[in-house]
Design a protein around this nucleic acid. Sequence first.
DNA 1: TAGATTGTTAATCGATTAACAATC
DNA 2: TAGATTGTTAATCGATTAACAATC
Lengths: 225, 225
Amino acid sequence: MPAKKTRNAPKPSLRRMPRYLRCLQRMAKERPEWVSCTHIAEQLDLDPTLVRKDLAMTGITGRPKTGYLLAELVEAIEHFVGWDTPEDAFLIGAGNMGAALLGFGGFQRHGLNIVTGFDIDPGKVGTKIHGKEILHIDQFVDMARRMHVEIGIIACGVASAQQVADTMVEGGIRAIWNFAPIKLQIPENVIIEYEDLSATLAVLSRKLASRRQLDAEAPVCGNDL
Amino acid sequence: MPAKKTRNAPKPSLRRMPRYLRCLQRMAKERPEWVSCTHIAEQLDLDPTLVRKDLAMTGITGRPKTGYLLAELVEAIEHFVGWDTPEDAFLIGAGNMGAALLGFGGFQRHGLNIVTGFDIDPGKVGTKIHGKEILHIDQFVDMARRMHVEIGIIACGVASAQQVADTMVEGGIRAIWNFAPIKLQIPENVIIEYEDLSATLAVLSRKLASRRQLDAEAPVCGNDL
DNA sequence: TAGATTGTTAATCGATTAACAATC
DNA sequence: TAGATTGTTAATCGATTAACAATC
């Protein structure tokens, strides 16, 4: 079979995939056989054409008038984002965020299985957090190599993040999910994605600030509930 | 003084502001008086013109050849995103993520002070998490109104998120930071920003999947370190 | 058949990058 | 002065939206 040319999908499209998936899984409870992207778009408040294009990237084809076969669509999206084959991951940094990630069961449904946490704090090493063992960072490289773990999650502080990243690269990690708010230097064959909570907070607080400014300028004229 | 027309900055620009701030604060340790956006751009791997435009939004003006006064720049950005005046926030849902957010001290530096957590679980209500009291949700509306808290953080599960959002709106919350991966119905005068971890995960795992596909097609020819 | 929906091509929109004059 | 840098205008790029033919 000829290899599909489904490479480098736009990032915004990729980021919407989980939303489609959740929407479809909720719909699935009512057991409809077919779904239209018009319907999906309504639920998620998106443009139908946008949804259609996104779905097309997964390689699925629909049927005019009826839409897409729901089960098939779910499968197509899951395969597209690589969530159909469960994947092991190691996490470094068992602080607040690290513990939350270790305990969050939902990643299982996203093909991600955080197997073990690593830390340097003697108070944490050897304990279990949410049922997951916490090992010393010194064991990381060896274990990652032996178990062929390819996904690493950085949940430590800014100060040690670069060093942790280096350790991950040394251990053969190929994709890093970085929660430390700092730009990391890594070889170009390693994939990295940043999760920056403060970015969202900046958007939120700026919006609130300018909303207030507007309110102050234009005096209130009616319906505060 | 005439009101600045600094309204509705593009979201990508807003999301970069915290990065500028962190970069500048790190630079500040070496105590340079002036910084150029060329230098900032280098550090963050961005286009200098992009940085210049972003900074211009904050209302600051630089000086050719020298750049910007570092202290002034930090202040301008902090003011722009509304992080110069500390703001109280309430959090609902003291599970894994909620606890992590309650414990994360870093928000203080971002003008956010999560005062109290709320939950419905009798096992949590009345306890403290990271020094923050956990109250019953029934107290939310009353307390939010009395304390004039305007920022709410949703850290509960998908199942109760809409109800929690309704409670927040009733309590007079004006800006919601939502960690539950579901589209919420709220009045248009309430600001909402979504934090969707699975979106980033989708990007990461898709990239990894297609990287692997490439590797499989093109046989390895050299330097695996 | 009529109508809803897909798939695709064209137009629009917004953000990033390039070009360049002004300036310290 | 020469050179680095700002501020601004124009060009490019990428993503979203609109238009429309094909189809079940």
